[in-house]
Amino acid sequence: MMIHLTLIGALLLDAWLGEPPALWNRLPHPAVLMGRAVDRLDRALNHGRFRRARGVLALATLVGLALILAVLIAAIPLGPLPELITAAILLAQRSLADHVTAVATGLRQSTGAGRSAVAMIVSRDTAAMDDTAVARSAIESAAENLSDGVIAPVFWFALAGLPGLLVYKFVNTADSMIGYRTPRHAAFGWASARADDLLNLIPARLTALLIAATNGQLTAMPAIRAEAARHKSPNAGWPEAAMARALGVALAGPRSYDGVMRDFPFVNPKGRRTLGAQDIDRAVALLWRSWGAMISLVVIWVALSVTVARLST
């Protein structure tokens, strides 16, 4: 039960403070430090023969590092506070909502301001985006990062405590950096990409369920499942399909990376294809509704655990 109480505290702390610039302008964020570890392993191991095996070694090193950190943090003699603060830092609900809202704010000023804001949260090319492409990109990022940055960390913390959360964050960071099927990382990043797919298997579907439930669309889950299969990712399609149906819009579709246009299929292709700042606002509202449903589930779990414990004594 203590894990779940710590989790509730972390969720509330993250929602309240997010990522204070006064702190992270002075100190490297843990996600940055994780990225440095991945980069160092990439430079040290990603060469020569047996790159897939070297990638497995890199992943094992990151998992080991995550477990060592969890032990060190748990050893700090301040009760659950160090774990609560660590979990709050590694959750991203408030920062996600703030970054996506900034795109809507920028888009209301000008297309250029919207492009600048969305470039902070997506990896695709933004220079030629129109208002619809900016809005669609922001909404897709909102849906995918709700799963990767909030629901999945909460799921693994609830299941395995701080070790589970730290392992997930290291693996997810590795996937974002070396999991792409580029010539350099096709073999070396294989293990990280597959591990990330596995760790997000349940959270991605749970995210879709939360989005649908908080929008009164639970009966649409079979359709969401079918639409998710259209996505290039085995997991990201679930929250995007749920978000697309909740907003009545088409997401995914063609987009440009490194100057090359890629013809990805639309998710919910019959949805509205002209999007704007108001659609981003609606997506942010769904982020908070899903967050509220998730924390409610954790509270219910704690209440049930207390009740069961009392009945058994």
Rank of each mutant, 00 (worst) to 15 (best):
V171N: 09
D197R: 10
V154Q: 04
V154G: 02
L91E: 04
R136W: 04
A97C: 09
L159Q: 04
A186Y: 09
A119I: 01
V150G: 05
A204Y: 11
A204C: 12
D125N: 07
Q93E: 03
A143V: 03
A113W: 02
A191D: 05
T173F: 00
R194A: 10
A138S: 13
E140A: 13
S176N: 08
L165Y: 01
Y168H: 02
N172Q: 03
A102T: 13
D197E: 15
D148C: 07
D148A: 02
D130K: 01
Y180K: 11
Q109C: 10
F155P: 00
A127T: 08
R184P: 07
D98F: 14
L206K: 04
R205I: 09
R184L: 15
A152Q: 06
P163V: 00
S110F: 01
A152G: 10
T101F: 07
G179E: 07
G164M: 00
Q109Y: 03
L201D: 14
A119T: 04
L166Y: 00
W190L: 14
M120T: 11
N200R: 13
A143Y: 07
V118S: 05
R108E: 15
T105D: 11
R181M: 14
S110H: 05
L206V: 12
M177V: 05
I121Q: 08
L166N: 00
M129W: 09
T207K: 02
F155L: 01
T126S: 11
R108M: 03
A138G: 08
D148I: 02
V100L: 07
A187E: 15
R115M: 09
G189C: 10
L209G: 08
T207M: 09
V134Y: 03
W190E: 08
L159E: 03
T207D: 05
Q109V: 12
S147M: 14
D197N: 13
Y168C: 00
T101H: 11
G112I: 02
E140G: 10
V171G: 06
L107E: 08
R94D: 04
S116E: 14
R205F: 03
L96T: 07
A158G: 03
Q93H: 07
A138E: 14
Y180T: 09
S137Q: 12
T207C: 14
H99T: 13
R181N: 15
G114M: 11
D197V: 00
I178K: 04
P153E: 01
G114S: 06
E144G: 06
Q109T: 14
N200W: 12
A92T: 09
A160R: 01
A138L: 14
R124V: 07
D148G: 07
D131S: 13
V118H: 04
H185Y: 15
F188G: 09
V118A: 06
G106N: 03
A204M: 12
L96S: 10
G189A: 14
